[in-house]
Design a protein around this nucleic acid. Structure first.
Lengths: 227, 227
DNA sequence: TTCATAGTTCGACCCTAATCGAAGCATCCG
DNA sequence: CGGATGCTTCGATTAGGGTCGAACTATGAA
């Protein structure tokens, strides 16, 4: 004889101190790795892993694999809302967390991630493409729209050539300094290569830093303004 | 290295199935007794008592002792809000509870509680007195305001006589059929006695039923209309 | 290929907390 | 004053789950 909505299960998930610490850390809106969340919670990585898979099973988290890293963020605004309400009840002073990325400013601004553009400029490009309607996110699938295809062609990228490649055209990639998405996949690769071909940017082989020329930065800004 | 708002503690309180059942039962807005909540939760009364004191310590409940009964209701709208949000997350179909009072319609309408008026008319009188500003609830203390004292005098109740009594003048009393407050204490007693003196009402000794005459009901309605 | 790093799985330990029986209070009723 | 009812406290039992060490997998770096 039981249960409408299983509020006990979800509350129990939040009810463990270690998990609660992880969740509050994620309230910053950032995506964090298992190790980082382990440190936040003050437990070992094994325990954190166990907790995180439970939270994931409970539908509270949204995991994303990134190479050998696994990033977790809150699953939805609803989850954040519940946490917010709980903090309200707990009535104490709200307190949020801080956590930063790489030290080097140049790396933060623009760098290579695998073989595509990352860093501040990478996320800016991604955001702009979404805002202009050139990219759309449909249930975790990233789609290049009609206008996007025109935009890409205009820039001088051969889409038909790209499509021959077996790897997916568009992939969302999580930025490790910004902790926001940027564009990966064949198209992401093509963008960076095109920037280099146009002599807008140059990548430093050793440091992963991508340095834009003055005109390159200007053109980039024209194409991917975020206003 | 710890804790802002202790969301884990509160979530853990909600996280136990038995307690969650009790809390959802209380979402009806009604006040329920320990035994009723025990049945809702499917546990024995001892366990329920233990759970309830924990919830109370956590500040989630508002207990009220009523003779040998102890009624619990949710402590605040904030608590209800958190539960609501949790139910939303649990995403299942919402499902509320039912629970009724005494069978007899006459008893429900008006009856004696100790020696004051209870039932539908009792709660109506209470609500009306509050609404008219004759009574005020200041942190669990019920106060007869200036206008209230005039109102009472107008009705022909001798306040100075009442104050000589050692028992408190105004007391909030939880109605067992309506599960809402009505007026007890010396003043509550005086009201009922006055109704009898005016031949507005008559109480049946055996059944606790209070029956109002036609004119009595009319006068009552005039004095204690609810909006 | 070899090494290092990020996470996961397995197994064992241990501790909290839920549970109920039994006894103890408190309150009302006759 | 008993006797009945509603609730609390105490104590003992038990189970579920949080924790970490150690071994394993997967990905990236040299």
């Amino acid at each position: 004889m039981k249960e409408g909505p299983d509020i006990a299960h979800i509350a129990a998930l939040i009810g463990d101190p270690a998990r609660a610490n992880m969740l509050t850390a994620l309230m910053s809106g950032r995506a964090l790795t298992v190790s980082e969340l382990a440190e936040e919670a003050g437990v070992t990585i094994q325990t954190a892993s166990s907790h995180l898979s439970k939270l994931d099973d409970g539908g509270l988290l949204r995991p994303r694999k990134q190479g050998r890293h696994k990033y977790f963020s809150l699953a939805s605004d609803d989850v954040a809302h519940v946490l917010e309400a709980l903090m309200g009840l707990a009535a104490g002073s709200g307190h949020l967390r801080k956590r930063t990325g790489p030290k080097d400013a140049a790396l933060r601004q623009a760098r290579v991630c695998y073989n595509h553009l990352a860093g501040d400029m990478g996320t800016q490009m991604f955001d702009s493409l979404i805002a202009q309607g050139h990219l759309t996110l449909i249930s975790d699938d990233l789609i290049l729209t009609q206008s996007g295809q025109a935009f890409v062609a205009e820039l001088g990228i051969d889409l038909t050539e790209l499509r021959k490649n077996k790897s997916p055209l568009c992939r969302e990639c999580l930025d490790w300094s910004e902790r926001r998405s940027h564009l990966a996949g064949g198209l992401g690769r093509a963008f960076l290569r095109r920037f280099e071909d146009l002599s807008w940017a140059k990548r430093d082989a050793k440091t992963r830093v991508v340095s834009f020329t003055a005109t390159g930065a200007k053109e980039f800004e024209k194409l991917f303004s975020v206003g």
